[in-house]
């Protein structure tokens, strides 16, 4: 089964997403920061990355997305963020600065999350 890496500093959110993905049959790897996220990405070779924006630094998710694309540009990234709700910020994909395939707002319903992952895997 495909492997999904979830990187988010909100540990409860990571566990909840992990349960949803595991019960749909995916293998799951997790990390709570950009640094460990990069390490685990290199060890585990995931097929999709689910990535938060604000972690230790408010732009960690963007930086990590850029770094991931330098290593394996073919791995799709689903960016999940509640930044907009908290701060009023309006972000979206950008080839250079926000190189992700899908940008979604938190909270996200499990059904929608699974659908997005399926779409990314089928691309």
């Amino acid at each position: 089964m495909p492997k999904i890496l979830i990187v988010d500093d909100d540990q409860d959110f990571v566990s909840a997403v992990a349960i949803v993905l595991e019960s749909a049959g995916y293998q799951v790897a997790t990390a709570y920061s950009r640094d460990t996220g990069m390490q685990i990405f290199n060890q585990e070779n995931p097929d999709v990355v689910v990535l938060d924006v604000m972690m230790q630094e408010p732009d960690d998710g963007f930086v990590m997305a850029q770094d991931l694309k330098k290593i394996r540009p073919e791995v799709p990234i689903l960016m999940l963020t509640s930044v907009g709700q908290v701060t009023g910020m309006d972000f979206d994909k950008d080839e250079d600065l926000v190189p992700v395939e899908v940008f979604e707002q938190k909270p996200i319903m499990p059904g929608r999350l699974l659908e997005r992952i399926r779409e990314l895997l089928n691309k």
Binding site: E57, D59, F62, V63, D90, D94, L97, V98
Partner: peptide, 15 residues
């Protein structure tokens, strides 16, 4: 405040 973070956030903002 880290300058790069400020620039990255403004760069990623849509407008």
């Amino acid at each position: 405040f880290p300058t790069a973070v400020k620039w990255q956030l403004a760069g990623a903002a849509q407008s």
